[in-house]
Amino acid sequence: MSPELKTEIEHEVAAHKILVYGKGTKAAPRCGFTLETIEFFNRFGYPFEVIDALDNMPKREALSELTKWPTLPKVFINGTFYGDTDILEPMAQSGELAKLLEATFGYAPADKQTINLR
């Protein structure tokens, strides 16, 4: 893993309280799991970033090496790696995720319902 890639990833992870590395972008997800992760975080009402890593194999390999996790999407919250919605969904059901997000952002989410016009 090149030092530049490692630094790039570290900056990205530090720059976003919720960061999703996925396939495609928020506007144009190109994988079912990336779309599912976007919809998952839309439920919580906090801002989140999606970085497309689909066509960047060196970065995908660096991310897999750093997280010891072979697949995309990869989710970081407040600089910590949390895998994907297979890990986050049980945390959401137990209420652990809501507490983590409130602590991360310092406010409770606006309880607005996001409507997916699709």
Binding site: C31, F33, K68, P70, F81, D86, I87
Partner: peptide, 28 residues
């Protein structure tokens, strides 16, 4: 922790993920 449990499964099927026999897996 749950994330390490999933890592254990991913390690087990790692070869099939790498060579594409498995494209996507939802784990429980």
């Amino acid at each position: 922790p749950l994330i390490d449990q999933h890592r254990m499964v991913y390690d087990a099927i790692g070869a099939a993920l790498k060579d594409g026999r498995i494209h996507a897996a939802q784990l429980k």
